[in-house]
Write a protein that binds this DNA or RNA. Structure first.
Lengths: 158, 158
DNA sequence: GGTGAAATGGCTGACCC
DNA sequence: GGGTCAGCCATTTCACC
């Protein structure tokens, strides 16, 4: 979540991103044809987007439920004090807990939002008790069950 | 976030998932070699994981800041009442707001957590006022700035 | 039924216009 | 930006255990 904006993106770049966000597995040939570009040009521009860091990486998404972790939750973590090094260390610790999908470090009432996928309620309790409230700097937690998680519309549309 | 567990995953499946989660762009050849499998076997099993829905899809990740949206936030949304159809409709509406990355429908104090990436504070305010609190069913919102978002360790490690 | 091996078609990447 | 070529990869088919 850093990196300055090297050069502005033109319309072709945005169209490439839109197509790749829609279907990351599209072949270069199909992508070029879809945008009316030569295949070599298309490959060049996509490569440039990667090297500039606009496209960070490619990832697979797994079905957590199919893997045996059907229960998802958001655990809000509030701290007792906010001394820099301890906060950073806790951030690291939270991110390395098994079954943690993502950790948001936020400003406001809560300090961290920990998104987890677990097998059952017992596993959820164990994470909270054994991995989170065990840290002295943690003042309290509040757990919210996730009914459903949906992707947003993303960056591209106006 | 559904789908029943068709058949249990064996060790090879888990190893394949671990490798693909680590590097989604690995070639089938390298993946097979890394696990000591034949290339065809490897391709077969990865294909099977996709067809079973264990691997949902492949996506690129973009750098929102590089795209001109350096400010991320979590907007907590609380509802006045929780009648089914209205909640579902709001879910859809939230997910289709521009600059929305993901929407969590949760149980607890808040009803939705909306993760957005915007260009500046003004754009954030506009989303809250023009796209969220504008819905009559929304009782209130609370916005938390995201300092940093980190990936967790995921599903695989013990 | 799952695994290993070979051949074909197609894509990517590099060089040059 | 666009065209060409070589190398490599994925997919399919078939034989084997």
């Amino acid at each position: 979540m850093a990196r300055t904006q090297g050069a502005a993106l033109d319309e072709v770049d945005l169209a490439l991103l839109a197509a790749l966000l829609d279907d990351a597995e599209i072949t270069n040939k199909a992508l070029a044809h879809r945008l009316g570009l030569a295949e070599s040009t298309c490959a060049h521009r996509v490569r440039a987007l990667r090297e500039r860091g606009v496209i960070r990486d490619t990832r697979i998404r797994v079905d957590e439920a199919a893997l045996g972790y059907p229960l998802q939750a958001i655990i809000k973590v509030r701290l007792a004090n906010h001394t820099g090094p301890k906060v950073t260390a806790l951030f690291e610790a939270l991110a390395s807990i098994p079954r943690v999908l993502q950790v948001f470090h936020v400003a406001g009432v809560d300090d961290f939002l920990v998104h987890v996928a677990v097998e059952d309620a017992t596993a959820l309790r164990d994470i909270v008790l054994e991995h989170i409230t065990i840290h002295p700097v943690v003042r309290g937690t509040e757990t919210q069950l996730v009914f459903e998680l949906r992707d947003g519309s993303g960056m591209l549309p106006r």
